[in-house]
Each structure stands twice: as C-alpha cells, then as structure tokens.
Design a protein around this nucleic acid. Structure first.
Lengths: 236, 236
DNA sequence: GGATAACTGTGTCTATAGGACACTGTGTAT
DNA sequence: ATACACAGTGTCCTATAGACACAGTTATCC
C-alpha cells in the first residue's frame, strides 16, 4: 500500500538487487530487453503508445508475461528511463565551472531532443537508476571547485536541468502562450481581439524559437549563479 | 483530426464564443458549474479522481450528458484550469521590477500551493482562458519599464514561472533525488552504498526544504535578469 | 531417481477509462 | 399546429491496468 514500498521495489529493480531465480523454467527474456523494446515503441510512436499489451506483443508474448519481470507499469517506465538515458557527460575536459555547466546543459538538451518523451516523465518524485544518477553527479562536478555550499550546488544544477526541461516542454508539446506550438497562432488571434485587456501580451511580437529561449534563460541562470559565487568568494 | 481544430474549439469555449442554443429544452446546468464541480473533486481527491463519470455523478447526471457541454475530456480540463486559477495579481502597488517579479513569483507559488494539481497540467502547449491569460500579462507589467526586448521579457517571466512550477513538482510529487519525497530516503541509501561511483552526491547532506530551493533559484534568476538589464542600460 | 517446490507463460475475468450513437422527450421558431 | 434543434439517457465499443487460477518446466532435496 504505501508508496515507499513500491519505490523500494523499483530501487531493487534498477540497481540489480533482485535475486535471480534458482529453480523453474528459463525466463524467455530479461528486463533489459523489455526496457529496450518499450523505448523503441516510445521513440517510434510516443510514450502514450507504450502499454503492457503493446510491449508484450512486440516481444511476441502476452501482456501478463511482463508482470513476471515488472510489478506494475510504473516499474516499466522506470526501467525505460534508465535504458533511455545515455551515459552521463564527462566534463573533466572543460575548463571552469561556467563552461562545464554550459556543456552539461547542452548535452542534457541534446539527449532530450533525441527522446522528447523523456523530460516529462523524468519530472516528479522518483527513484533513479545508476546510469541516470550519473547525470546529476556529473553536473555537481562542474561546481566542485566553487565556494558554494552543497545545498546551493544542488539548487544550481536543478535550476539548470529544470530550465532545459521546461524549454523542451515548450518546444515539443509547447508550454505557455508564446511558444511555437499548435496553440500559439490561436492565442495570438485571441490576444489581438482582446488587446484592450491584454495590452502587453497583444503588442508582443511573434514567438521566439525554442533555442533562443534556452539561450537567454541559461545565460541568466549562469549569471545568477556567478553572482552567488562571487558573493561567497572572499575579497582579496 | 488536426490538433489545431480541437484547440480552436477550446478557445471558443474558454473565451465565451459559443453560440447559445435558441431552440430545445433548457440545459440543466452550464459549463461554469461543471468546471466548479470538477475543481472541487480535484481539490478533494486529486486530479486523477476527475473523470467524466465522477463529475457527472457529482452533478447528479449521467456521464454522457457532459458531452453536450464539452467535446472531450481535454475541454473539461481546460475549463477546470480557467475556473481554478485565481485573479491575476495586481503589481502596480509594488515598486521596481525586481520587487514586482518577486511578488509575482510569491503569488504564483501561493496559488499553486492551494491547488497542487494545477502546475503539472498547466505545462505544455495549451490555449489559455482570459483569467489565466491575466497572469503572464501581469508578469509582463513588472518588466515594462526595463530596457529588455519583448522577447527577453517573455523569456524572463517564463524563467520565473517555470522555476516555481519545477520547485512545486519537486515538493509535492517531488522531482529529482534530493528533494523531500518518498524516494529521497531510498536514494540516499543507494548513494551511500555506491559512494565510490557517486562521490559528490553521496557526500551531500540531506535534502533542503522546498522553500530553500525556491529562494536560491529565484534570487539567482532575478540576479541573472538584473545582469541582463544593467547590460542593456546605456552607461551615463 | 523420483517427489517437491519454485518458477514460467497463458487464458480468463474484473474494473475503469473515454467516447460513439441511437432514442425519447422538450421547447422554440416558423 | 408542426417541424426542428436541442436536452439527457441507455446501450455498446475499445483500450487500459491488473488479479488469479492453471498447466508446463526445472533445479533442488530426500
């Protein structure tokens, strides 16, 4: 019943802590194959196409067979994520915290551009797998030599990844009004019709590209972090 | 078929552009009642409890009766959002763009704290209703006297609202590893067990409170925006 | 070397979701 | 008065996640 029990189960699954069975017939496949298949479906037809039946059918088995490997769909999603995230970026070759963080942001953005269904499901309270955990670890390495506190470092890297996530949501399904989605032209018409009530929005020109949003926001965030760093640095 | 058709229909619904019927029996209720009922259900039992059947039953009618008022569930959600967002904040009493934006962030955060199901569904490509549109309009007013370009202003207010959204996601369902959710203690154990692979994360102490995250991030963002503003300001 | 217990995949069943569609009744405009 | 446009209802369909009993398979124990 308690959600933490489920998440403990997810943790065991993701970190390879489940005891392999000693007796009984050979499993026809393993979790990695299931995860890869599900990822393939999501890549091809989107996350909403991923159902137990669909993944099972893709493997040539019945839906219920999957439940021998996975307790519920949440676990399927969890192993999907772990299989879909690429290896964490190595920032050791980049000089300076700012360039490192920027490089991290670009790699994260590139990874999510390849799999547009990832950013949305990786938000929220979750247990991460070892591969995925490598990403925040990598991001933290960017700030290792700064005078920021541990807490501030975590906040800073969350700021960056949340920004990338939000801008991706704005780009693919879109987010607010002014981004380039299906809703954008409709909203523009509505704003022009009601220009008296929304003068500022109505006079604002057309939507910027997603990359522009990312750039301004990323620079602003990094400027803000830099401000915090210089504040913490003792004046000499 | 095309998604933009659906969104055009949503726009007509939200902005009151649907012609009232001339002939036929009186409707037993109106869209506002439906929206309020759905909001009440979401407030009491969460968004996942909101189904056509549930809302209809709450009103004492059958599920299919709702489809006379709403084309599909997406439209129900749309009117729910419009009914649930409060009036946009009036920032005219606050002095200075920074204080205004900060006040805006606090009001947005307070509004979303009252309705934890709102931030998640208000992300993504959407047509907004007139009440909700008042919010970005209000946010833009904070930056009206700054030398930022229109585009930069939009980027800036998106930065703020996305940050609030992300931190709320971190607080209620939680988000990454280190936030205060069900998954956090489990992740901590895993990190300590694998401290050799994740030295930076493993040595990091316990999760900060959600408000702390908001504060650091908000200040960083505002510092970044301030940096952009002072850059654009001609030196005198 | 058999019995046993653990395990596999399958078939059947339930609950719940969104939604299509035909039907009966009602109110207004012609 | 009549016809039309609308209202709510009941029935039906498809798809979802999941519970559970069942038959076949395999390693371990006596």
């Amino acid at each position: 019943m308690p959600a933490s029990e489920d998440q403990k189960a997810v943790a065991e699954l993701l970190w390879g802590l489940r005891k392999p069975p000693s007796r009984g017939p050979r499993p026809a496949f393993d979790i990695a194959q299931i995860a890869d298949t599900a990822v393939k479906v999501a890549d091809a037809e989107g996350l909403e196409a991923v159902s137990m039946q669909r993944v099972a059918a893709e493997l040539g088995f019945t839906k219920m067979a999957l439940y021998r490997y996975v307790n519920d769909k949440a676990e399927l999603i969890a192993v999907m994520i772990e299989a879909a995230v690429g290896p964490a970026p190595d920032l050791s070759g980049v000089c300076g915290w700012r360039a490192k963080l920027e490089e991290y942001a670009r790699q994260l953005s590139a990874a999510w551009r390849l799999r547009p269904w990832l950013p949305s499901i990786t938000a929220g309270d979750r247990v991460m797998g070892p591969r995925e955990t490598g990403w925040p670890e990598s991001a933290l390495s960017a700030l290792a030599d700064t005078p920021l506190t541990e807490r501030e470092r975590l906040d800073a890297i969350m700021l960056v990844s949340n920004h990338i996530r939000a801008t991706h949501a704005a780009a693919t399904p879109g987010t607010q009004t002014w981004t380039a989605g299906n809703a954008a032209p409709i909203m523009r018409d509505l704003l022009l019709l009601n220009a008296d009530r929304f003068p500022l929005l109505a006079t604002t020109q057309a939507a910027p590209s997603a990359t522009t949003i990312q750039e301004f926001g990323l620079h602003a965030i990094l400027d803000g972090v830099e401000h915090a760093i210089t504040q913490r640095t003792p004046k000499q």
